[in-house]
Amino acid sequence: MRTRNLVLAATAVSTAVFTLSACGGNASEKGQHAAGAPRNTTSTVSVKLADSEYGRILVDQSGRTLYAFTKDKDGASNCSADCIAVWPALTTGSQPQAGSGAQRPLLAETQRTKGVAQVTYNNWPLYYYVGDAVAGDANGQGIDGQWFVVSADGKLVKKPAN
């Protein structure tokens, strides 16, 4: 009788462990953020400078252009879900790094949602533009008079370089 109770107990524990492991993890473990776009949780995000027709501007570690939104204030994003679909936030799962030419004191993070940090530079939350196909594209520059590339000093660049 005692052996039968031990076998039943072991079976119950085994079933419980299987049930728990089959449930899956939370959204951040699956690499998703609130808007449903992929989130960079495994590699370090780096912001650096690259040459462009607008002078030296901020790009990510892959050379993709980064933008700021004039409606963002005090380091907080005002880009809603519809906005994020066109202007995905530069998010990170770890402390962002200052790459070549970027000023480390200007680089920080702001919380978009619980557990999702957006990279900021000089208090500007940073975004990509879905219309940029490859590194070096800056097709989002000046859209709606509200989206601009960012210079090394953290200011918005509104005119091409001379």
Rank of each mutant, 00 (worst) to 15 (best):
S43F: 07
G131F: 11
E53H: 14
T42G: 10
D144E: 13
A35H: 11
D153V: 13
T42Y: 09
A152E: 11
S94R: 08
L58I: 09
K73M: 14
S80L: 15
K71I: 00
S151K: 08
G115L: 10
T44L: 13
G75V: 08
A152W: 01
C83T: 08
R39H: 09
T44E: 14
T70I: 13
V59P: 02
T70S: 09
Y128A: 01
N123T: 12
K73G: 04
A152F: 01
A135P: 07
I57G: 02
Q32I: 11
Q97A: 12
H33A: 08
S80E: 14
S52L: 00
I84C: 07
S46W: 03
L49I: 07
L66I: 07
D82R: 09
Y121I: 01
D144F: 10
G145Y: 00
A81Y: 05
A68E: 06
A34M: 13
K73Y: 07
G142C: 09
K30I: 08
D74E: 15
V45K: 03
Y128N: 12
A50S: 11
S94G: 12
T120F: 05
V150P: 01
R112E: 13
R64E: 09
G99I: 10
A102W: 01
N122T: 01
T44D: 12
D60G: 04
